[in-house]
Design a protein around this nucleic acid. Structure first.
Lengths: 212, 212
DNA sequence: TGTACATCAGTGAACGCGCGTTCACTGATGTAC
DNA sequence: TGTACATCAGTGAACGCGCGTTCACTGATGTAC
């Protein structure tokens, strides 16, 4: 009877040690970013959101910037997973691999617009994303390159041509991703019978990159 | 002898009234944004940069947000001017109008990366850009639509097709614009003999949108 | 042309606030013997 | 299995700072007569 957790209100019965506060903090940061905007994210706000004292984060992150980078990195990992998942579960053989990946990319940005914005900032800040897991970071890029070559966007031995094709596709999809939450496109989305159709119609044009 | 301006140091001999403080403040804001990042812009910093007391801006802007919007709006105006100028001065008839406009757009973003970022944030926040000068705001868009129709991207009576073509081109150019300051593309820029060639090579693909 | 006065566009001091970060601390956990 | 102790992951109070904004003020300008 002595040590049993107090049953009164089990959400308030948090143990002194959190368990995985680092993860809880990045999750809290994502919540804040999406709910109140990237500007609203502070170390204190993150701690508050995670239900922890203002000093607690310093046991897991050197400073605010390190938290931001962790959030961005987590975002890229999740984006990579989303793209892989889409490839693995796509059943319609008439849809090209590039389009499947592209749609997954855009939908991720659509669902996490503020996070996507932060990820982009991280990617710009120097080469901020840590190089330790270059493999992981490259996953998405490799998928795209492979798919573009398969689609005939460039000859397999035309290295520069391949890079340019990748850059084009990347820029295009990035543009669509960022614009995806623009209200300006709402009428067009409706006219095409839904958001997803709109993106598919746009992404179809990536195929045009390979046209001779 | 009485009222003559003190000649000692004419940069320090600013009159009590500024002349055009509103403009000086938006210029100062742009300086700060490009120099220290959008995060660093505060009303106080803007006033400091303009050499004026912290309370002075309140005679010209209701609050910080109004200053930000003014900066964004000014950015769009300048971008529109840059595109028009490029159209008016392009002499090579082998370059399509879409590509001329696109390159001007991308180069503007390349030269003002942080400002471009702020502009985009302004455009996203609600329909933040004031509607009074809808005409002006539409200038760029009209130029693009006209050029795309001229390029055969869609039949003149296919209204939806035109809109989709515009959306595609817009997303693509936006993507290139934002990626233009990514160091990741530096090797490719070099391989293609310079930055401008790189953008031209990318933008050439906008033409592919019209391919049947 | 000169004077009185309303209005405009600045000043500078002050406010309350949330932030990042540090510090000495303490409760919980894991390990050596 | 039990005890001593090092280590880890929290707490909460405190710091100094720059911020947005307000306020009573004052210098400069323009207008009526």
């Amino acid at each position: 009877m002595a040590k049993a957790p107090i049953p009164s209100d089990d959400t308030s019965a948090r143990p002194y040690h959190h368990g995985d506060l680092r993860r809880a903090l990045t999750d809290a940061a994502r919540t804040i970013i999406e709910r109140d905007g990237p500007q609203a994210l502070s170390l204190r706000a993150g701690a508050r959101e995670a239900g922890v004292s203002p000093a607690a984060p310093y046991h897991h992150f050197k400073d605010k910037q390190e938290l931001m980078l962790a959030v961005g990195k987590q975002g890229f990992e999740d984006l990579g997973k989303a793209m892989k998942l889409a490839l693995d579960t796509e059943t319609d053989p008439t849809i090209t691999r590039t389009n499947t990946i592209g749609l997954a990319y855009v939908m991720f940005a659509r669902r996490n617009p503020a996070l996507y914005r932060v990820m982009y900032d991280c990617a710009r800040d120097l080469d901020a994303l840590p190089h330790e897991d270059e493999e992981k970071d490259m996953t998405g890029y490799n998928l795209v390159r492979e798919a573009l070559v398969a689609a005939g966007a460039a000859a397999p031995d035309d290295l520069i041509g391949i890079e340019v094709a990748c850059a084009s596709a990347w820029c295009f999809v990035h543009g669509v991703a960022e614009m995806s939450s623009f209200a300006q496109f709402d009428p067009l989305k409706e006219a095409l019978g839904g958001e997803e159709n709109f993106y598919r119609e746009l992404l179809r044009r990536v195929g045009a990159f390979s046209g001779r």
